[in-house]
Design a protein around this nucleic acid. Sequence first.
RNA 1: UCCGCUGUAGCUCAAUGGUAGAGCAUUCGACUGUUAAUCGACAGGUUGCUGGUUCGAGUCCAGCCAGCGGAGCCA
Length: 449
Amino acid sequence: MTVTVRTLKDSVDHEVELKGWMYNRRGSGKLLFLQVRDGTGIVQVVVNKKDVPEPVFETAKRIGIESSIIVRGRVTKDDRSALGVELQCSDLSVIQEVHDYPIQITEDVPNIDKLLDKRHLWIRSRVPNAILRVRSEVVQAIRDFYYQRGYVLFDAPMFTPASCEGSSTLFEVPYFDATAYLSQSGQLYGEAGALAFGKVVVFGPTFRAEKSKTRRHLTEFWMVEPEVAFLELDGVMDLAEQQIQYVVGRALERCAEELKVLERDTAILQQVSKPFPRISHAEAQVVLAKLKAEFAASGNEELQKLSNDILKSGPDADLGAADETVIGMHFKQCVMIHRYPRHVKAFYMKGDPADPTKALCVDVIAPEGVGEIVGGSQREDSLDELLKQIEHHKVPMESVEWFVDLRRYGSVPHGGFGMGVERCVQWITGCQHVREAIPFPRTIYRLNP
RNA sequence: UCCGCUGUAGCUCAAUGGUAGAGCAUUCGACUGUUAAUCGACAGGUUGCUGGUUCGAGUCCAGCCAGCGGAGCCA
């Protein structure tokens, strides 16, 4: 019977066949311990010299890391093994013998660039393997969340005629005799979908040519963007909160093994089930000013340094990276900041009727230094206001003419948000860099492998 | 685009301007319960590139290249 490591516990005392790769070997002259991985986990295979034919023992002793093998033997319970069970080898055959595998089995990630050159092999190792399994669960949880709530999956195009937000730098692509741009957001198309289906979700890759070199940026990343007709700002915040709670909850529930491999302290993740604090940008300024003063007087060198970076862009500006970090430190859970100054936000966001200088928008800040994982808003639904904003933000009218149509024919209040999948996975897994949260990361200086 | 940092063996890192070294990995050997096994041995180098200063440069200087972290921008 062919089995997998994940379900090996069900086969105790049975003769089984396991197909996989040798992950590591320890042992002595007459007893070998092969760590064998099969993609679902790692099991210790015990090769006892007196239990196998001489050539089998010699093979087990000789083959190098990542040799592909088929092992046959009996599954036994053993508390000394991390898995709880072991495989007592009776036979072993080699599919391909390897002796020069270029990656070492090591716990730390010292030079990520060299490992990323070997990303196609590195993903076999425990830590990246666990992170990508969490990513898989996160993506499935997102799909389930929206499917269960009756959202229509609405795919937006990757080739677009022009910028949707006007601010980010776009990748240009030759498109026959014209120039196309890779999509940086499916949102405008999501709005068309919301007016057609009521509730839609756009889910796919997005591309940004920002020359950012930080642990939070990729040039290609996945974004989930729900868009809902008749949903106003409070509803957008409710939806974002529920979706994050669902996704993190699923990861905690179904990825316990992976989070253990990653040595993730899940205490802060558990906090996600509580309501997220909701503060306005103006209220955030007050909190930040107070923390700035506290940190400056703390006597702690690091905090004093951080203090200098708090609110450095001024009171009427967007929050900086330090501001987000500090907010996360202060609340120790996800925080929603709403009603930013309108002039720092995109043209399609609706002004606050109570204060037209503010936008009806919300960012969700994840704790532990991850920063913004969600940005959303109620959209401008008035034709006249939208035309004014388009002119003010200097958005080329010819490329958004179709979008303006949405305000001419049955416009309604509506809203939505976008969540970066990799940042979400980065937070859940606690990995240092967002590029570890995607199989083959694309950054400003990396297009390979 | 700007600011800062790094580049030495396959990997991680040492080396006051004076003989380039260690641990891990590889290879060989020992070991019947190892958990990143341990122990012994062999092997492994145009110190990112180009030029300069010097009796002498891995080390100091200049330029270039590659990468990392951050700012801005953003998810």
